[in-house]
Design a protein around this nucleic acid. Structure first.
Lengths: 249, 249
DNA sequence: CGAAGCATTGACATCAATCAAGAAATGTGG
DNA sequence: CCACATTTCTTGATTGATGTCAATGCTTCG
């Protein structure tokens, strides 16, 4: 992964290939990708699907980590709260991503839907059993984990060293790329996160995010279609700004 | 882990228990902790020790990831560089921590010694063989990886939401705690990182770090002993500031 | 003792946060 | 389908925290 494609990998999260999860019935489930039919049968008996509305919580920070989740439809955000109420968005997740996997007893962050969608969940204990039966599955989790770690480091680099506009540019590009990797067609992308969500992800206020987006619009780099539609008119300009290779800095 | 003990876990890194690595001969080697004598014999034939001076590189960003390293003595920093030269310190590592483990072909970051010390390295390919022979070892890497991920998220929270003084306070406390967990005695801790290193870790300039440290000194919270000695006089005050639970924010 | 590296401090500039008002989009009920 | 309420977004004015530039002082080490 290019170390500068800051948020791309975070956006990409733990998503993966194009296999079909027999139980969930949808394409491209991160968790199930490396499994053959026998493993999937094993999992199917213990997994459940749930439909959720926008803003619904998948799990809360501090919850006992009983389940591991796969987001099968929709977009979610991962949040972490400080005792004084300050909040940060740790990352965004898309259809196909795995959520809430941890060896700790509690979830260190909460997860909420940004759109309506569905999740598929399996008991943590059941997953441990499967790890023992199918070592390949555990290997896969290790890979996902390392990839996510690399993405977190990209994000650390962005938060520590990028200006406001650089962060927003990197975010918009990574959002578009994440959707393209998920078979998105057409020039208009979804932007279900509010300015406040984006700001909490990038360590900025919502006003600063809004100003950056307005600046890009004035420069003709992007076009907005309602509150939810985003079109990248000059992607090269955004990539240039969001890649940390600007000459004067 | 307390979500607010921001940098503590990052400082703690992948360090671990108190087992003895037969090959390296030193206490508390992260990599070897879960292994019995048979596994250690297996590893010993392929691992090598190296002595390094302060500022020596252990590996560079972009290097082929042939080896996995264990820091057996000394302190190191992990750095990531942008094309325009901006640099960030991703984390610090202490004796007992594992470095450079990745399934990717290249190291995504570089590692340099801050003090003189020694490292023990094993070939990545050899480690893969061991994974197949000792599933417990792979499980251990998964645990370390998840813990490091949680630490990265703490750091993201700090970079995105903490003020300069809060970040420096959290850093000093975590540095002290990391050394205490490694059998440190006495009130004076080592601070081998320069103001510039700390600043690159916390997303601040070296001047801002210096000002924060001076402010703590003026308030009687800390005392400095030369360029390398740090004494926490009022740890509670530092913890209060660095925990994100200040009332007015 | 002197040199080199690192740290401190001050003056000033700048970027992003804050405070505040109003506009656009979305959703709701009649 | 329209009017209204709500939420989200935009923009402006101002403030404040941190960065930048520059000069000086302290530690360490040869």
């Amino acid at each position: 992964m290019h170390p500068l494609d800051t948020t791309r990998a975070l956006m990409e999260g733990t998503g993966s290939g194009a296999d079909i999860c027999l139980r969930c019935g949808s394409r491209s489930i991160g968790l199930c990708a490396p499994l053959d039919a026998g493993m999937l049968d094993d999992m199917a008996g213990d997994s459940e699907r749930h439909a959720l509305d926008a803003r619904d919580a998948i799990f809360h920070q501090g919850d006992t980590a009983r389940f591991v989740y796969t987001l099968t439809e929709g977009m979610a955000r991962l949040t972490r709260v400080l005792p004084d109420g300050r909040q940060a968005v740790i990352g965004f997740r898309f259809a196909g991503d795995t959520l809430g996997f941890t060896p700790a007893t509690e979830h260190a962050f909460g997860a909420e839907m940004l759109t309506r969608g569905t999740i598929c969940r399996i008991e943590r204990r059941r997953l441990d059993t499967l790890f023992r039966r199918y070592p390949l599955l555990e290997r896969r989790f290790l890979d996902l984990c390392v990839r996510e770690l690399a993405a977190s480091q990209d994000h650390i680099l962005a938060l520590g060293r990028f200006s406001a506009e650089e962060r927003v540019a990197a975010f918009l590009v990574s959002l578009a790329e994440a959707q393209e990797r998920r078979n998105h067609a057409g020039p208009v992308f979804d932007l279900p996160a509010t300015r406040a969500d984006i700001g909490e992800f990038l360590g900025l206020t919502l006003e600063t995010v809004s100003r950056a987006i307005s600046a890009f619009r004035r420069r003709g780099w992007i076009r907005l279609h309602g509150h939810n539609g985003l079109e990248l008119v000059d992607r090269a300009a955004l990539i240039g700004l969001g890649s940390g290779d600007r000459p004067g800095a």
